[in-house]
Design a protein around this nucleic acid. Structure first.
Length: 135
DNA sequence: GTTCTGACA
DNA sequence: TGTCAGTA
């Protein structure tokens, strides 16, 4: 990391996040209810997610895919942003991700999932996002 | 067209 | 969790 990349800058709509994570809109909102994520809200009450949120969702995705019960997932990703030391460690990847890993993670989830929509579109947006941040 | 909330199955 | 409704 060269400069302080504002990965916490909310710029992604729920639609993008949906494609990025593979979660349904229903699930994304549900996890918000569980306080697993706290997207920014625009005047029109529209949710805007940050790269951090996506990383968080991706983390949840891992756990969900591994069929971890919600109560356990909630314990791992308790507060929307405070990295509190979890009592249990379901996955070995609880540490923070650097930009490189994050991007790989996101791309990986896209390639693995093969979204019927257009992954290239999202990747383009992501690339652009990171490009702007680094400049 | 996209997203939001609430609600029902 | 999916989906439908009525909005913004």
């Amino acid at each position: 990391m060269v400069d302080p990349v504002p990965r916490d800058m909310a710029v992604l709509t729920i639609g993008i996040v949906k494609q990025l994570t593979g979660f349904s809109l229903r699930q994304i909102r549900y996890y918000e209810d569980l306080d697993l994520i706290a997207p920014y809200r625009t005047q029109g009450d529209q949710r805007l997610y940050s790269i951090n949120d996506v990383a968080r969702l991706l983390h949840i995705k891992d756990l969900v895919d591994q069929e971890y019960p919600m109560w356990q997932i909630k314990q791992v990703l308790k507060p929307p942003s405070m990295p509190e030391e979890p009592k249990i460690r379901p996955t070995p990847s609880e540490q923070e991700l650097d930009d490189g890993q994050l991007l790989r993670d996101i791309r990986g989830s896209l390639q693995t999932r093969r979204n019927p929509t257009s992954p290239s579109m999202i990747e383009g947006q992501l690339s652009q996002f990171f490009r702007q941040k680094r400049r």
